[in-house]
């Protein structure tokens, strides 16, 4: 097994996710199956190969640094689950 349940719990914390105990068991099993499968990449020697990080052109295009249109504050808040006084309201951040 590549990863155990405690490591899966750690990954879940990094990803801001949480599961039931039963789900942790299932994910541990499934992630191990997938990791075992992707381990076949180790058969290839890639020490002299460059990484492809993008399928597009290699150089980023440049443009004038000119301001364009934008949306209003009201519009930006229209989808907020809890807007308040022109802000996105959230629960307590510091305990």
């Amino acid at each position: 097994m590549a990863i155990g349940k405690s490591e899966v719990r750690h990954i879940a914390r990094l990803a801001n996710l949480d599961f039931s105990d039963e789900e942790y068991d299932r994910f541990t099993h499934q992630l191990n199956a997938i990791l075992e499968y992707v381990a076949q990449l180790d058969r290839l020697d890639t020490s002299a190969i460059e990484a492809t990080s993008h399928a597009g052109s290699e150089t980023g295009p440049l443009r004038e640094d000119a301001a364009g249109g934008s949306i209003s504050q009201e519009e930006a808040l229209r989808n907020a689950p809890e807007p308040g006084r022109g802000h996105f309201k959230v629960p307590r951040v510091i305990g």
Partner: peptide, 21 residues
């Protein structure tokens, strides 16, 4: 926070993230 679902009744921001997702 900005759009979509928000899980109700979270006490702090960290648990809001986890419960919503």
């Amino acid at each position: 926070v900005r759009y979509g679902l928000r899980a109700a009744g979270s006490e702090d921001l960290a648990s809001l993230y986890v419960r919503t997702r």
